[in-house]
Computed example of a mutant assay.
Amino acid sequence: MAKTIATVRAIAVSAMVLVSSLSPSNSYAAPQPGCEGRSLIAELSLKRPAGVASLLENARQAENSQAILWRIERHGISPSYVLGTLHIAHPSLQELSPAVTSAITASRVVALEQEQLSRGAYGHVMAQAGKLMSARDKPLQRMLDDSELRVVEKAIAAAGYPEDLALGVRPWVATLFLAAGCPNVTHEPMDLIVANFAKSQGKKIVGLETLLEQFETLASIPDEAQAAWLRSSIEMNDRADDVTATMLELYKGRQISASLDLMRELAPNAGLTDARMQDIRHGLITARNVRMAERGLPLFETGGAFVAVGATHLPGADGLISILKSSGFSVTPVE
């Protein structure tokens, strides 16, 4: 997990995927000596073997789940590409594959979830987003017990803020603080690696969303779902590096759509009901798919675009690849 809205590492297995693009200053945290995690899938499989096996198999069979790099084509225009990234910094993700670098080199424009990945950009948006983040009715004091509230206070203090800030923020903000990444960051997240390579090739870089829009999306999740999401990150607070390792296994195994469901398995006491999971899924993934598709379609229609977004935005009937198919494009898995 990590602490920033430019790239939060994984908050609970689901937030790892999307919110990873939404957090403050240590978002590029990477495993350091003593901080290596281990995947929790084997542990979960021992506790509930049939359920977890079904969950993983469904993710493997999900529509458009077999690849993270796709070629997007339409007669008469240059091919474009879509890459599903993982918003964490990890040693095994520090090099782009030859297929990815070739696709970027051949493209005229590169689109990321957001154009500005810097801490400076985050600070600018913070000044605009205060009303989305703050709450006068002390919601965390109402929603959490004393021990849970103490976990949040410690995370806020570790980030360099007064711990009583916890009494004045909404649950989604507290969730972003629950990131205990290791110090002495030396690695970069995939999105930044893509951006840096694109810049080295002289490519134009654009964003499909703004940081403020991402804040607004998180703030729009109903409070009850926000609270359950926060409790899940509190429940997994001591196993942040294990959550990262779990996310990495899902990504490499092309089972990324299982991340939200595994969040509930990892935090069974958080109150993640079906309705709350649906609200979280809509806010983190589905609603953003629509927005990113609307802004990406003109790029694909012109051709020669390379689009990199979180991998959970690609699979499923409401994923970006399905949206592109329904828009008349031919899609081909590359790797």
Rank of each mutant, 00 (worst) to 15 (best):
Asn58Cys: 12
Thr332Phe: 08
Ser232Cys: 04
Gly304Ala: 14
Ala166His: 10
Val309Met: 06
Ile205Asp: 04
Thr332Gly: 09
Gly202Tyr: 05
Leu149His: 06
His187Trp: 11
Ser147Val: 12
Val194Ser: 03
Ala135Met: 07
Thr85His: 06
Pro183Ser: 10
Ser118Ile: 08
Ile205Glu: 00
Pro98Lys: 08
Trp70Gln: 02
Val334Gly: 08
Asn289Pro: 09
Ala308Lys: 01
Ser92Lys: 06
Lys252Gln: 11
Ser322Val: 13
Ser27His: 06
Ala127Trp: 03
Glu36Thr: 02
Glu113Val: 07
Pro162Arg: 11
Phe329Leu: 14
Glu249Tyr: 02
Arg150Phe: 05
Thr101Ser: 10
Tyr81Leu: 09
Trp172Arg: 09
Ala174Ser: 06
Asp164Tyr: 09
Ser23Cys: 03
Asp261Phe: 06
Met292Gln: 05
His75Val: 14
Leu218Ser: 09
Leu140Cys: 03
Arg281Thr: 12
Gly34Thr: 11
Gln61His: 00
Ala30Thr: 07
Phe306Ala: 11
Ala15Ile: 00
Ala103Phe: 04
Cys35Asn: 14
Ala174Gly: 06
Leu260Gln: 14
Val331His: 11
Asn64Gly: 06
Gly120Thr: 07
Gly34Ser: 12
Glu73Tyr: 07
Val206Leu: 02
Pro24His: 00
Ile156Lys: 07
Lys204Phe: 00
Glu113Gln: 13
His124Ser: 14
